[in-house]
Nucleic acid binder design. Structure first.
Lengths: 214, 214, 214, 214
DNA sequence: TATGAATGAGTATTCATTCAT
DNA sequence: AATGAATGAATACTCATTCAT
C-alpha cells in the first residue's frame, strides 16, 4: 500500500491536470451521449476513474461541468480544424475539400454534433456563460474568405458572396444528414451509411460550387 | 364513488379522446422543451389537467408516452404540410415557395425541431417503435418530384436530380440555422432574428435553383 | 394483498391526517433530539413509518418541516397549558401553583425546551415564518395578570408589577435549570434529579412571592 | 518545496501554539454559530488559515475539536470573570453589581451562551470528557458566598441562603432572556434590545435582593 | 374512467477524514 | 509541522411508477 515509487516527486501538479482532463473527457462523452438531464455524475466519475467529490472540487456542480465540457468540445474541434490546409489548392478544389472535410469532421466526431444539439435544446443557456469565446470561434470562415477572394480574382467565382452565410450553408448541408440520421433513416427509409454520406458530400460540394459560379 | 350519472352516455368515449389528446399535447410540449430525460410526468399531468395514473392507464410508461408524442409531432406537422399547394406555380417559383415554406414551417413549429433533435440524440430508439409509418412519411418529396419533372420538361431544370436527396438538402439548409440558432448566435455573433432567417431562405432558394439549372 | 376491509370508505381523508400527524410527531422528536442540522429525514420517515417522499409531498423540505414541528411544539404545549386552573386559588397559592406547574411543564416536555433552544441557536430564523401566531401565544400571561390584580386588591401583593416581565422571570427560573442541567451538573457537581428540581421550584416560588410582597 | 529557512528555530514551538489557538478560536466561533452538527471543519480551517489535515493532526477529530472548543469557552469566560471585584462594595450593591455583570457577561459573549446550549442539547456528552474541571469551575460562587456572609453579619441579609442555588437563580434570570431572545421576541412581541435587557437586570437584582432580605 | 396517497430506486451534492508528499 | 488532492459514506431531495378506492 505504501509502495509508491520514491522517484516520482512531480506528482501533485501533473496528477491534478491529468485528473481534470480525465474528468473533462468523460463528461464530454457522457453529456453528448445522454444530454444534459440524462447525464450522470456517477458514470462520469467511474469513467474518469476519480471520485465524485473530486469532480465537485474541480468544477463546482453539474451545470459548470457541462459548460466546461461544452467548451472543451469546441476547443477540441478547433484543434482538429487546424489540420485543414486549403491554401495550396485551386479555389474550386479548395471548396470541394472544405465540404468533404466538414462532413467528415462531423462524422468522425459525433460527440460534437450531439453536444451542439444538446446545447441548442437547452436554448444556449450554457454557451452564453463561456468567457473565452476566442478559443471557441472557428477559423474556417477566414480560410473560406480567402478561397472566395482567390476565386473571384481568377474569375471562377462570382463576387458578393458573404463568407459567413456561405459557411453556414455548407455546415447545414453537412450537419443535418448526420445529426438527423436516425429520423431520416426511418422516415425516408434510406441507409445513411458511409457511401450515402459520401454521396451527400459530393452533392453538397456540387451545390456549393454552382452557387459560386458567375 | 362509482355513481357517475347514467344520463351522460357521450361522456365515456368523447372525454377519453379529449383526455388523451390533452395528454399528448402536453407531452409534446414537455418533451420538446426538456428532452426525454428532462421531461417530467408531473408537469405533463398538470399541464394536461389530468392525474398521473390516467397517463399511465392510457400510455403505459414514460417511454411509450414519449413515442406517442413523437408520432403526434409528425402527424401534426404532416397535417400542416397539406396546406402547401405547389401545382399551380411554375417550377422555379414552386421551388422558391417550397424552400420558404420549409424554413417557415420549422420556425413556427419549434417543438418539431426540438423533438427531432431529441430523438436523434437518443439514437432513434423510439422512432423505430412507431408502427404506422405511413402517417409519418412526408408527401413533400412526391410534390417535389412532380415539380422537378415539370421543370425538366420545360427545360428549365436539368435531369437526373434525385428528389429525396434534393429535399434533404433543402431541409438541411432550413433546419440547421433554426436548430442551431443559439450556438450560431454566440459563436458567430450573428443575430438570428426574423430578417436574418428570411435572408437564409432566399439564399437557400437561390442555391437550390442554381443546383437545378442545366 | 387485496384484503383491505370493504367497510372502510373514509380511508383517504383520515389516513392523510394520520400520516401528517405521525410525521409531525416524529419530526418534533427528531429535531429536538438532534437540532436542526443534526436531524435526519431518514430517521423521521422511519419513526413515522412513512416514506421520505411523502414527507416532502406534505411539507416541502427540511426547513419547512422543521418550522411545522416548531409550531406543533408550541401548539402542543399550549394545549397542555389549558389544564392549568388558577382562578379558584388565593393569589399566593396561585403563584406557587403557577411556578410549580411551569417547572413541571418544562421537565415533562423536554422536547419543548430543546426545540426552543434549537430555534434560538438558529437566531429565530423559523419562528418568524410562522403565520398563525395567535395559536402560539401563551394564555398564561393573562392568567397571571388576573392573579396579580386579585393580589393587589386583597393587599397581599404590591402594585406596579408588569405581568409579562414577571412571567419571563418565572420562566427563566424554571427553564434554565432544566435546559442547562448537563453543564450545571458537571460544572457545579450537583445532581439535578427530581428532588433537586423540586427544591428549585420551591425556591423560585419563594423568590417570586417575595418580589410581589408590598 | 521543503525549503523552510533553517535560521528560524523559534518557528516550531511558537507557530504551533499560534496555529492551535487560531484553530481553537475559529472552532469556538463556528460551533457556537452553527451547533455541533452544523459546524464545518472546512470553515474552521479557512477561518483559522490552516489546512484541514493540521486540525486533525492537532485535535484528532471533530468531536475532540468540539470538546476542546467547549473547554476553551469556559476558560475564556472564567478569565473574563476575574475582572469582577465585589469585595469593596457593601453587600447590597455587590449583589446588584453581580447581577448586572452576569447579564452583561452573557450579552457580550454570546458564543458562550450558544455553546452552552449546544452542549446541553447534546446531553452534555462532551463536557463529561473534559478532564481538568478545575479550570472550568467558576469562582463566582465563592465570591457570592462571601457577600452573603457579609450581608448576614451586617444583618441586611437573612441567613440560610445556599450560595450555589442562589447563583443559579441569578444565572437563570440573566441567561434566559438572552438565550431565548428570538423566541421571546416573536411569541411575546417584545423588543429585546439593550434597554429591555437593562431593565431585566434591574428587575433581577431587585428580585434577588428581596429574596435575601430577612 | 379517474385520482390522491404513497413509495423504491435513484441523483446531485456534502462532509469528515485520510493519503502522499 | 504542514498541505493539496482525494474519497467513502452519507444526506436532502426527486421521479417514474403503483396502490387503494
Amino acid at each position: 500500500m505504501k509502495n509508491k515509487p520514491a522517484f516520482s516527486p512531480k506528482n501533485t501538479a501533473r496528477d491534478t491536470t491529468r485528473s481534470k482532463n480525465s474528468i473533462l473527457s468523460a463528461a464530454l462523452i457522457e453529456f453528448s451521449a445522454h444530454g444534459h438531464a440524462g447525464a450522470r455524475i456517477d458514470r462520469i466519475a467511474r469513467q474518469a476513474k476519480v471520485s465524485k467529490p473530486l469532480i465537485y472540487a474541480f468544477f463546482g456542480n453539474k451545470d459548470a461541468l457541462y459548460t466546461a465540457a461544452l467548451r472543451e468540445a469546441y476547443v477540441q474541434i478547433r484543434v482538429r480544424e487546424q489540420a485543414l490546409n486549403l491554401d495550396e489548392m485551386d479555389p474550386e478544389n479548395a471548396i470541394r475539400a472544405l465540404v468533404r472535410f466538414t462532413l467528415q469532421h462531423f462524422k468522425s466526431n459525433p460527440w460534437f454534433v450531439s453536444i451542439l444539439n444538446t446545447e441548442n435544446l437547452r436554448g444556449g443557456k450554457s454557451i452564453r456563460e463561456i468567457e473565452d469565446l476566442a478559443e471557441i470561434r472557428s477559423d474556417v470562415v477566414n480560410k473560406l474568405d480567402k478561397i472566395l477572394q482567390r476565386g473571384v480574382q481568377t474569375g471562377v467565382f462570382r463576387a458578393g458572396v458573404d463568407p459567413l452565410n456561405f459557411y453556414i450553408a455548407i455546415a447545414s448541408l453537412c450537419f443535418f444528414p448526420i445529426s438527423n440520421r436516425y429520423t431520416l433513416r426511418t422516415v425516408f427509409d434510406c441507409p445513411i451509411d458511409d457511401a450515402w454520406l459520401e454521396q451527400k458530400a459530393e452533392d453538397a460540394a456540387e451545390m456549393a460550387l454552382k452557387f459560386l459560379y458567375p
